[in-house]
Measured scan of single mutants.
Amino acid sequence: LYHVLGLDKNATSDDIKKSYRKLALKYHPDKNPDNPEAADKFKEINNAHAILTDATKRNIYD
């Protein structure tokens, strides 16, 4: 999941948040209406963010 956000395992919560915002804006379906690959990437980014920002889920993942 870290690679989805372009981060390593030592990433801080701020790093995760910044990377998520940058990538979410880039791949958001509203910005890429005719690109199904961007929509899939956006879903991956959201999933990675949801797990890595939840301390319990992140510990389980790590």
Rank of each mutant, 00 (worst) to 15 (best):
L1R: 01
L1F: 15
L1T: 02
L1A: 11
L1D: 04
Y2I: 00
Y2R: 00
H3W: 07
H3N: 07
H3F: 08
V4C: 12
V4K: 01
V4P: 01
V4I: 12
V4Y: 02
L5S: 07
L5A: 06
L5T: 05
G6R: 03
G6T: 00
L7E: 07
L7C: 10
D8F: 03
D8Y: 04
K9L: 06
T12E: 02
S13N: 13
S13R: 06
S13T: 14
S13V: 10
D14P: 06
D14F: 00
D15H: 01
I16Y: 01
I16M: 01
K17F: 03
K18Q: 11
S19P: 03
Y20S: 11
Y20W: 15
Y20M: 05
Y20E: 15
L23N: 12
L23H: 00
L23K: 08
L23I: 01
A24H: 07
A24P: 04
K26N: 06
Y27H: 15
Y27W: 15
H28D: 14
P29K: 08
P29G: 05
P29S: 10
D30S: 14
D30W: 01
N32Q: 13
N32E: 06
N32F: 08
N32R: 04
P33C: 06
P33T: 11
P33I: 03
D34M: 01
D34Q: 09
N35C: 04
N35A: 09
N35S: 12
N35I: 08
N35G: 07
E37Y: 08
E37V: 14
E37R: 11
E37A: 09
E37Q: 14
A38I: 12
A38S: 11
A39F: 02
A39D: 13
D40H: 15
D40E: 10
D40L: 15
K41L: 06
F42I: 10
F42C: 08
K43P: 00
E44Y: 01
E44H: 04
E44A: 10
I45M: 04
I45K: 08
N46F: 12
N47D: 09
A48G: 04
A48Q: 00
A48Y: 01
A48N: 00
A48R: 00
H49F: 14
H49P: 04
A50K: 11
A50Q: 07
I51P: 10
I51S: 08
I51N: 07
L52Q: 02
L52Y: 03
L52A: 07
T53E: 07
D54I: 00
D54Q: 01
D54G: 07
D54L: 02
D54P: 03
A55V: 10
A55N: 11
A55T: 12
T56Y: 04
T56A: 08
T56S: 10
K57Q: 11
K57N: 02
K57M: 04
K57R: 12
R58N: 11
R58T: 11
R58E: 14
R58G: 09
N59S: 12
N59L: 10
N59R: 11
N59E: 14
I60W: 13
I60G: 15
Y61D: 15
Y61K: 09
D62V: 01
D62T: 00
